[in-house]
Amino acid sequence: MSCANIQVSETPLMLYALRRADDALILGHRLSEWCGHAPILEEDMALSNIALDLIGQARELYGYAAKSEGRDNDEDKLAYLRDVRQYRNLLLVEQPNGDFAHTMVRQFFYSAFADLYWREMMSSRDATLAAIAAKSEKESAYHLRHASEWIIRLGDGTDESHRRVQAAIDDLWAFTGEMFAVDDGERALIHAGVAIDPGTLRGRWLTTLSDVIDEATLSLPQNDWMQQGGRAGRHSEHLGHLLSELQSMQRTFPGLTW
């Protein structure tokens, strides 16, 4: 492996798998930053478990992306040798951990979507994606449950926790719209039955959110302006720093086996 960026041929199917792989890796990486620093030991365990599920999903999706690309890229080249402009993840997942409330709200927004998404993807006409979906759906369902329980406790806990979790909801809300967006390449895959239309999930996603948010005595923002760009490599400033850490070994010692 050289330390220069790899070239990627983003065919629609390859790009589709790559985007989901990037989501899983970046969110898994963020959660792994908590390991050793969580509010209680039990939560160190829980966050690490979620991170490990996501890193596992990323590896399968990168493997499939590389396979459908048909060049000599592999999971590690895709993860370690693309620059910020080549990363295709949602803006939501690259947002910094912030306090525990921000981490949990980010997880809640994402997992509420991922749970619905993977469940639908189980009937994808693409056998590999359907298999990845079957495994990921069970994982996402648990992530959603865990995050939901925390949102309820933080929202209906103390004044301070209520304030913090509401602030996190307000901060992260604008990054949720991107989950439901579709471009032309994806539209063709949806048409072919390989992908599903995420737009159809939005109603159910909102219901999941509202149930928890209501019980937590919190509220969703009225502001419906949504940030976009992650899927096309236009990221927040945070991703570059994450990648400089994630990729430091491969960039410093090009082409070695570890």
Partner: peptide, 22 residues
């Protein structure tokens, strides 16, 4: 954990540090 050189190593290290917590 955040700098492990491959995804396989990253998962293994995270699982190991998590074990220590356990």
């Amino acid at each position: 954990i955040t700098r492990a050189p491959t995804l396989r190593r990253k998962g293994a290290l995270l699982a190991k540090v998590q074990d220590e917590c356990g």
